Amino acid sequence: MLGKFVAGALVAGVASLWLSSAHAHSIKAEPNDAVQASFDIIETTITTKGKTAVFSTRVRGEAGKDKPDATGKFEGSSVYAYVWPTSLDSGAIGFEKSQGIVALAVTFHPDFDDAANGGKNRHVWHPHWVVLAKDEACGAGLKVVDIPKGAKPKVPATWPGVPLLIDSPDYPTDFKGDRVDVEIPLSLIGGLVGASYDGVTAGLKINGNLHAPLLCVSDVFKVASGNLSLPGKVMPAK
């Protein structure tokens, strides 16, 4: 039931906000003791400062403190993530247009590497662009979009070579106290100024059978807006 709500609300929120404007400078949320403190979002923002966009999330506890346990194998392994779903089109991040819901995600996964050009990133928090779509096979009703075997889609230069619509850019990412920040040059992402957004903390899981859907959103820890309506709007920092 939760999975259907999450997927449906996110898709509906993106669709409606493509047609209307959000007005919130940031999204604030009440603390919730039922959520693990390091994932209990209390504020999410995407602001611009000069030629840079800053994606930021504050939590009730220490950001980045909790990480998934290593399993020693790729299949069935877990990913934790701080996520900013947006109203951006997938074409803005280097994929074909209209492929799904574009989100920036800062992730940690101890069992595999997915950095660009064969780099190593399994033991550090690091950013990705991902394209999400509904899939009832996933626990939360969403997946990272799969690339079918044999397909040769348009991909960005820092695509890590995995069969997913995922990008591995090397954006500066900083964890400090209750906050995680990612800085992105505005020149790299078309249409970001004025885009709508939300904040999510989530767990993802690699399919144990290594077939599509390969990477599922398996659990949603918290949604900043409470309903994935993307009420935030990318604006200059105050």
Rank of each mutant, 00 (worst) to 15 (best):
S229L: 12
V131T: 01
A133C: 03
I206F: 10
T57Q: 15
E62M: 09
P68D: 15
P169F: 10
F39S: 04
H128Y: 00
P236R: 04
K154D: 08
E62G: 06
E183K: 13
L204R: 08
T158N: 11
A24F: 04
I184D: 03
N121Q: 01
S98V: 01
L88W: 03
S218W: 08
A53C: 09
V54H: 01
T47M: 01
G13N: 12
P236F: 14
P85V: 03
T48C: 11
H23G: 08
G8I: 08
S21G: 07
K49V: 12
L10S: 08
G72Y: 06
D66M: 04
I42L: 10
G177D: 12
Y80F: 10
L2T: 07
A133W: 03
Y82K: 11
A133P: 10
S196I: 00
P68V: 09
T201G: 13
L17V: 13
W129K: 06
G194D: 14
D66R: 10
A224N: 01
L88D: 08
S20R: 10
T201F: 14
T45W: 07
S196Q: 02
E75V: 09
N117F: 12
I184K: 10
G64F: 02
G64L: 03
G100A: 13
V131H: 13
L192E: 07
Y80W: 10
K97S: 08
K4Q: 12
A116G: 03
I27C: 05
I166A: 02
F221S: 14
P172L: 02
G203T: 12
E183R: 11
V155A: 08
A116Q: 06
V217I: 15
K67G: 00
G194V: 13
